[in-house]
Structures are given as structure tokens and as C-alpha cells.
Design a protein around this nucleic acid. Structure first.
Length: 290
DNA sequence: GTCCAGGGAATCA
DNA sequence: TGATTCCATGGA
């Protein structure tokens, strides 16, 4: 593969730290020079930001780095308009948007997002990243870039013969069986990912996702929001989102007593069809300030 | 030793 | 339907 380079200038709503550390992705790592290197599909890319330039360097399968970048980073979408709309809601939103002003929601592969968020259940981000890295190294394809080896996220086909025990050895814990079952459900076409990708009915897609082993309401919503499904109206509720929603709006003494339905209704009412983006600003802000 | 992490599934009321 | 409990693992 040939090395490619691509530069985007004067890009608004684009900050590497905000994009890669807001919790949506697990395969981008900060380098010593402050740039980030990551892998998606069969692309290995390093990104750095200097002044008003974003510099992408790496190798792609298609040989068209610019096209891959524009797809993956959702470059055509107007995040400035989204932020203006959300910022009008209240001062809380204004504050969290100001904090995460460079967030963009990546177009991540559906299959990879499903498996990644099954792994995320009752887990922490460093450990999730470690598990995904080990799975990729064990079963993905090697891509060399600048003397270093990177590994693609394995396809369902590449995980076909992996046993529950082998998953367990990679440190998956109790999620091993879920990964095994979901992999085989998809291989057996009990859930057809291409059909999901084409289905405009979010509730139908959500129910299909919920039929997968290890996919409950929160994981399903993360898949809907963070993958190429791109459903901005969903509102994934985890411990951090419950915390920030209670702190800002509900104000119960014990946040663990607040029902998911109450949070969901409030989110729909306040944020409407941009609830998912609002969630991401709130999540990132609340998690970073501690 | 104890608690917690971007929860889900089984079980029980 | 709604609430409890268990589930591996590793870091704080």
C-alpha cells in the first residue's frame, strides 16, 4: 500500500481530543507529538492538527484517503448548525457544547460497533480498548505502516471458528458467550446487517439489535448513534448520563433511584431529534470534569 | 479488601 | 412491567 496524505483547511467543529476521547470509539491512540493514530476498515491513519490545518497521513485500501476521511469523519455534516440549535436549549447545554466543541460523530462500521459495545458492558474504557486490540491482533489482518504493525477489526467470518474459551482467554470475562452467540447469529443471517443499514425505521432496527446476545437498551442505542446507522434521536443512558441528567435537571438525592424512562422522556422533550448529540456533549463534559 | 466500570440476562415480586 | 442479583476482570 502506498502512503497517502490529505489536508483539510479551516474545518470547524473538529478537535482530535474531543472526537477520539468522547467515548464513541476505541481504536485511536494519542502519540507523543499529540497526534492520533487509528485504524478503521483497512485504513491506518495518523492525524495531526496545526493552526487551521488538519493533516491526515496513512495507508488506505481504496487508495483514496480523502474520500475515506470525508466519510469516516462525517465531514459533510454541519455541526455548527447542530451546536447553535442545541445551545439555545439552556445554559447547561451551552456549557457542555463549549467544552466539547470539536466533537464529531464518526461513521463507524456497524459490525465493529456492535461487537465493541457488547464488550463495553459493565467495563471501563481502557480495558475495552485492550480487549478490542487483543481480538484484532489475534484474528484481524495485519497492516504495516511506518515499520509498525496494526490489525484490522476481524470480520464475523474471521471469528467463525473462535471458541468461547478462546474469547475468555483474551480477557472478555462474562461477555465471551455473548460475543460468540452474536457472531454466529450474524453469520447465520438471523440479523442481516445490510438490511439494518437500509431500514429507515429506527424502532425496527432497534428491536433487531436487541435480539442479539449482549445487546440491551443502552448498547443498542450506542450502536444506533455511533455506527453508520447514524440515528441522532436515540439517547444512550449509562451511569454517567444518568448522573449528569440528575445533577442538571432532575436533582434527586439518590441518582441511582432515577428511572431510565424518566431520563428518556426528559431527553426527548428537551433535545428531540438531536438527543444523541446532546447526550455526547453532556457525557464528555461530565466525565472529563469528574 | 473494596469499589467501580459507557449493562445484560435471569429471576422474582 | 419493575426491581434484584450475578456475571469476569483489572485498576484505583
Amino acid at each position: 500500500m502506498k502512503e497517502e496524505k490529505c489536508i483539510l483547511k479551516d474545518q470547524k467543529s473538529f478537535k482530535l481530543k474531543d472526537i477520539f476521547e468522547c467515548g464513541q470509539c476505541f481504536r485511536w491512540n494519542e502519540q507523543e507529538d499529540g497526534s492520533y493514530t487509528g485504524i478503521w476498515k483497512e485504513n491506518v491513519v495518523n492525524v495531526k492538527q496545526k493552526n487551521n490545518e488538519i493533516i491526515f497521513e496513512g495507508v488506505t485500501k481504496s487508495g483514496d484517503l480523502e474520500k475515506e476521511i470525508k466519510e469516516y469523519f462525517d465531514i459533510e455534516r454541519d455541526y455548527e448548525a447542530i451546536k447553535i440549535k442545541l445551545g439555545k436549549i439552556d445554559d447547561n447545554m451551552k456549557k457542555s457544547i463549549e467544552y466539547g466543541e470539536g466533537i464529531r460523530i464518526l461513521n463507524q462500521d456497524l459490525w465493529e460497533t456492535i461487537i465493541s459495545f457488547i464488550i463495553s458492558a459493565n467495563n471501563n474504557i481502557p480495558r475495552i480498548k485492550g480487549i478490542i486490540e487483543r481480538i484484532s491482533k489475534a484474528y484481524g489482518k495485519e497492516i504495516k505502516y511506518k515499520e509498525k504493525s496494526y490489525y484490522t477489526f476481524p470480520t464475523a467470518e474471521e471469528l467463525k471458528d473462535v471458541t468461547v474459551e478462546e474469547f475468555r482467554k483474551l480477557g472478555l470475562g462474562f461477555r465471551d458467550i455473548r460475543l460468540y452467540e452474536t457472531t454466529h447469529m450474524i453469520l447465520e443471517n438471523k440479523v442481516n446487517l445490510e438490511e439494518l443499514q437500509k431500514n429507515p425505521n429506527t424502532q425496527e432496527v432497534r428491536e433487531k439489535l436487541l435480539s442479539l446476545s449482549g445487546v440491551g437498551p443502552k448498547v443498542a442505542d450506542c450502536i444506533l448513534l455511533f455506527s453508520t446507522l447514524k440515528r441522532f434521536e436515540v439517547f444512550p443512558i449509562d451511569v454517567w448520563v444518568r448522573r449528569v441528567m440528575n445533577d442538571l435537571y432532575i436533582k434527586e438525592n439518590d441518582e441511582t433511584k432515577v428511572s431510565k424512562k424518566k431520563i428518556e422522556d426528559l431527553a426527548n422533550e428537551k433535545f428531540g431529534n438531536l438527543a444523541g448529540i446532546a447526550q455526547q456533549y453532556l457525557f464528555y463534559w461530565r466525565r472529563e470534569i469528574g
